[in-house]
Design a protein around this nucleic acid. Sequence first.
DNA 1: GCCACCGGTGGC
DNA 2: GCCACCGGTGGC
Length: 348
Amino acid sequence: MIYKFSSLKRQGNFEFVAMQSRSPKITIKMGGKRPEITLLNIKSDPETIQKDQSALEGPSVPSYSDRKETDQNVVDVSLSEYNTEEEDKDTPLCDDSHKQIVLYDHSLNGSVAVKAVKSSSSDKRPSSSKAPPEVGAFTVQCANCFKWRLIPDLEKYEVIREHITDQPFTCETTRQWNRVVSCDDPTDIEQDGTRIWAIDKPNIAQPPPGWKRILRLRREGGSKFADVYYESPTGTKLRSLPDVFKYLESHPEHAQGVGLGRFSFQIPKPLQENYVKKRPTQKERLEPSLVEPIAWAGPVEKFDLQLAEPLSWAGPMDNKNGMPAYLNPLELDPANRAAKKTKSLDEP
DNA sequence: GCCACCGGTGGC
DNA sequence: GCCACCGGTGGC
């Protein structure tokens, strides 16, 4: 094995993308704007989504039928196992629109890729309101006109993303998939608030042959926006660089020519404020009353008193939150979801 | 028992 | 404040 993972982080000139996460996120400037990549969750109505698809598949765009197999593989690889070929044939972007996510590259010269990902009856996890959102489309911004262009599939998107700094995307780039569109044409997709957008990270290497890079979005209000993991040629799912390193070490047959630089666990950043739950500050953790609804705890005076004079309560204490047991919201209402949140606030 | 999903945090 | 990393766990 060539790499010593523990030492990689200290090397200054390696090319590993994952190690560049702390460098300036985007360094290229186009027309005074800073290019970036984004990802968005489509909340729009099916009509809007269909419109997006129409923009991509418009009259000048050849059918995807000849690339069907490739496209399908791509989606399976990186987005999820949720969609089926059957569904793609019909209304690729219509169903479950509230769960779809569009991935687009905005600050990087834009191009946009859109790909429908839908739930199916064969899902391991049933489709429900609890299901996490999914990537609905990829988009990239043209470096010249800054209009969004849909990218037909993940594979193309990954290629564009990998080279976005060196090879800025323009409307011309769409000719690679035989689409004829110019900067004079209207944008493929509008940032009109009907979708949730997220900024993707530029220059992420394509996964090595046989590997899949999978992006899993989390539900709104969680502690993180998404997770990335890689699926190895043997089907092992790896969720960190140390994991990958260990795998490559124990599977030298799959480590041939595969450097850690081919892996990046960077996730897109949602543009929507508060999509991800803010982590309480240390002060808030120390003073949970600042963030707790006072309704559970009765009169404010009483609650403050307990915080200010902890020893004045001689009754049973709640071990988890350090409050008198009678103030424990979990006891007051076990079903209260908000009460769950206070747990972390009060842990030492 | 597995694993998809989520929460939390140490280190920067 | 961000993020890479990992522990926990509910649902299967």
